[in-house]
Amino acid sequence: MLIEKAALPASGRVTSLRPKLPPRLLRGALRLRRVGTVGLVLYALALGAVLGLASANWATRGRYPFGGVVLNAWTAWPKIGSRDADPYVRAIHARTGEIPLALGEGLLLTALTDDAGRRLDPSCRYRIAGATPPARAWTLTVERRGQAKHAAQAGAVPPPRTGFTSTEVLRDRDGRFSVIVSPTVQPGNWLPMPEGEGSIRLVLRLYDTPVAASTGVLEREGVPSITREDCP
């Protein structure tokens, strides 16, 4: 690649100025040109290898690139545990060692944004509210990239809570619930915003749910809403 960069302007100038150049320089230019061909081939090979490997690494780092069913802010992943999972999902599982939720076990839903489409901001307060999804049980957790590393480094006290289960969440008279994710203490169902650096992700897992077979049920019944309440 370096060779090519050096060769390019030289050969370009040489071709245009050829009549005025002494033969010694001409020979040099021809040699440069030959090196240039080899250099170009090497450059193409290197480009292919580096870009290919880097993009493969990036695409299989941990979060599923595609194949989800989008429901408002949430994305459902019904296929990750089944045998027709796409190659990216398989590669991710192979790299992380994940044991995915199988189709008959439950359904995984993740959210990276709020209902308005803005990315979840760790310093804001969010309200996750709605009716209980059709499932025997569900859990709602908040995750942050690099959280484990942060905890190991700081040796800090673990957060008082990382998630809610359908058993322990407080509900109103109609059976609806409302969880508040916030860095500061809140009344009601408070889910502390995790410490760390990376981006925030909300994870809703439905266990033993009829939804797993078809996400149409979720479309009809609705998923919990994620509303940004206030930001400092």
Partner: peptide, 19 residues
């Protein structure tokens, strides 16, 4: 362009080979 095509091939091969 050759490099980019090659990169695509390497990408697909890598993702399929990882498991």
């Amino acid at each position: 362009l050759c490099g980019l095509v090659l990169a695509g091939l390497v990408h697909v091969a890598t993702v399929l080979a990882i498991p």
